[in-house]
């Protein structure tokens, strides 16, 4: 008989704890938001806008940080364990990106992977830029690894690490990672069309 009144406060405490944790983690989540498309912007249907829906998505931006820290997850939180850019964008000397990331996603551990897994070079830091600024940086040969338009199209539509965004595997809880809002085929067609039409950055 006595156990019932005792268990109620415990249950209340537990529920309270869970609620507090949920509220706290939401707070942490929002402080790392890296979304570059304002929520109220009407998404247009031009090749430029379609391409940018992908390039501003966290699947791309997380590895194009504006500092030396890779980001993770929908909330773009800093990579756990203090991992940083290190040397050659490949991590530290003895603990490299490839200590954990292999050429394919690992569905057992939830660790994402793709060939030549690495951080984008510092000159390609896009985090915090809007889509127009990203496009400018992407076309700037001083920042884009001296790539011509043809080479950019190749990088954007053929590179397996770039295309990983459309097949990002599952996370550590086995939950599929979110993909960009348009399909891989639509994205590729948009990139090709935008470059074919002269890679003109629309006025803001």
């Amino acid at each position: 008989m006595k156990t019932i009144p005792h268990s109620i406060p415990i249950i209340l405490l537990l529920v309270g704890g869970i609620l507090m944790t949920a509220i706290y983690s939401r707070g942490v989540v929002s402080s790392y938001s890296s979304t570059t498309i304002p929520n109220n912007e009407v998404l247009k249907d031009t090749p430029f806008d379609k391409m940018m829906q992908v390039l501003t998505h966290e699947r791309c931006i997380n590895c194009h940080p504006n500092d030396n820290i890779p980001k993770q997850g929908k909330d773009s939180h800093p990579h756990y364990f203090g991992m940083k850019r290190g040397e050659d964008n490949l991590g530290f000397t003895a603990t490299q990106c490839t200590t954990c990331h292999q050429p394919e996603n690992n569905d057992y551990s939830g660790v994402p992977g793709a060939p030549h897994w690495s951080l984008a070079p510092k000159s390609m830091g896009w985090q915090g830029l809007d889509k127009y600024e990203i496009a400018k940086a992407m076309l700037d040969r001083a920042k884009n690894g001296n790539r011509s338009h043809d080479e950019l199209v190749h990088h954007l539509t053929e590179d397996s690490l770039v295309l990983w965004a459309f097949d990002p595997g599952v996370d550590h809880e086995g939950i599929p990672r979110e993909t960009p809002p348009i399909s891989e085929a639509e994205y590729k067609a948009a990139v090709i069309a935008w470059f074919e039409n002269g890679a003109i950055i629309p006025k803001e």
Partner: peptide
């Protein structure tokens, strides 16, 4: 791939073998 207990070497490189 979070704790490192499974670390071994593959061709001389530290690798987390659970992943």
């Amino acid at each position: 791939a979070a704790c490192g207990a499974c670390t071994l070497h593959v061709d001389g490189e530290a690798v987390r073998s659970c992943s």
